[in-house]
Amino acid sequence: MAAGCSDFCWNLAGYILVFLALLPGFALKFNLSVFSSAIFGATTTEANAFSFIYLFVYAVGRLVTGLVISPTFTAVNVSRLATLIQVPIFIISGLLVLFGGNSQAVFWIWVVLQSFIGLGLAAFKISISVNVLDRWNMVSE
């Protein structure tokens, strides 16, 4: 470990990292349909469809992430990619909400973009346990 930081300090840093990486996805995941109705005036059917698409992509992400992690595409890379993709997607989504108007097309583009956030959330969640095992298992000591 790097000098100048105790075990507690590194644990705290890891806590903050995981907390911040997961927070945006969770903020969205738990409020999918209410956001769609509040921002776009979506009907119940549209909000339900949004929830289904988001959670389906999220489920696929959780399934596939474990399969794609390999010695070349490591869990560290997955966790970095999972946090990195959220940044431009949230910015584009914000611009879309601000300047895109209220049309159906804009709403569904927004749904697709937000579903990629779900993909990032799922990938990061899977990478946590794999990263912890990589770092702390007995073989690497």
Partner: peptide, 18 residues
């Protein structure tokens, strides 16, 4: 709604650099 997205983008960016 847009502000929420920008705030979440900022949080994700901090998480990425961490």
């Amino acid at each position: 709604g847009a502000a929420l997205n920008f705030i979440l983008a900022f949080i994700a960016m901090v998480a990425y650099f961490l």
